[in-house]
């Protein structure tokens, strides 16, 4: 059952060039995508192709100079900015891309506790930290005292304890070592198996493929194709779009090649 639907979404930014002269800069155009309960949709594509902006558009946290058109529905209901505000962090949770999304002046333990709703906050936070191999003392630390990988695990913990039914993870794994990546990804899988919908934005195609059900390929603000995971194999001959093939072949474990003009 599809829980979140994006119909014909376009996002553009208004910018001032000189003085009062304005230009609009289209970053997402006519994008359609669908999240299904119990499934993980991986979103891959070039950097700067609007993957994070899609996540921000769904949550309603685009900057003020952004203009959107099109429609996003959650559970059959159109998402207005007021509804987005009610849902975010509760029904729809974000694992942000940058570790700078942590509050620099708040101990990380209490940041995680603040997103727990249905159960004992302290217990939930301690459990989730233990699960991600964060020591008990880490809860009392400030973000600047954490390594990049630890800060990332704190961000993932925040979403995990929130009890949301849609999780949007924007590059949750870079800078983590293999063991922790595997664990985080397995948690997303578990999450989906419990009936949640997960959108996993990632450059790490290899690990995304291990857990995803479908893969959406982004390029220049639109979806080129939604391919089944099985098509990513061998030389990528089953992939339909040339950019998807280029992306697959550029991986270091494949050909590590790049084609002029494909970026």
């Amino acid at each position: 059952m599809s829980i979140l639907k994006v119909n014909n979404l376009s996002v553009s930014f208004k910018q001032y060039t000189s003085g009062l002269r304005q230009t609009t800069h289209q970053v997402i155009s006519n994008l359609n995508i669908e999240l299904v309960s119990g499934e993980i949709l991986a979103v891959v594509g070039a950097s700067g192709s609007g993957k994070s902006l899609l996540a921000h558009a769904i949550l309603g946290i685009l900057p003020l100079n952004a203009e959107t058109s099109g429609q996003i529905t959650y559970d059959g209901e159109v998402l207005t900015s007021k509804r987005q505000e009610q849902l975010r962090g509760k029904e729809i949770a974000l694992v942000p891309q940058s570790v700078s999304y942590l509050n620099p002046l708040m101990r990380v333990g209490s940041q995680v506790r603040s997103s727990v709703r249905k159960r004992n906050a302290k217990q939930a936070q301690e459990e989730v930290f233990q699960r991600y191999h964060l020591k008990k003392e880490v809860g009392n630390m400030y973000p600047f005292q954490l390594s990049g990988g630890m800060a990332r695990r704190v961000l993932v913990s925040t979403a995990m304890v929130s009890g949301a039914s849609v999780i949007i993870a924007d590059e949750p794994t870079p800078g983590l070592d293999k063991v922790v990546i595997e664990e985080a990804l397995n948690n997303f899988r578990e999450f989906a198996d419990q009936g949640c919908a997960v959108m996993l934005i990632s450059h790490d195609i290899e690990s995304a493929l291990k857990i995803a059900d479908k893969v959406a390929v982004f390029y220049e603000g639109t979806v080129l194709e939604v391919a089944p995971v099985e098509d990513f194999e061998g030389k990528g001959d089953r992939l339909r779009h040339p950019y998807t093939q280029a992306l697959w072949r550029a991986l270091p474990q494949n050909d590590f090649t790049w084609i002029e003009g494909s970026i």
């Binding site: 950097s47 590059e171 450059h203 280029a246 992306l247 550029a250 790049w258 084609i259 970026i263």
Partner: peptide, 15 residues
């Protein structure tokens, strides 16, 4: 971690 945040095509080009 020079190319961790980049897509595979860009990563291959830069390397």
């Amino acid at each position: 971690e020079m190319t961790t945040m980049l897509d595979a095509v860009t990563q291959a080009q830069i390397w």
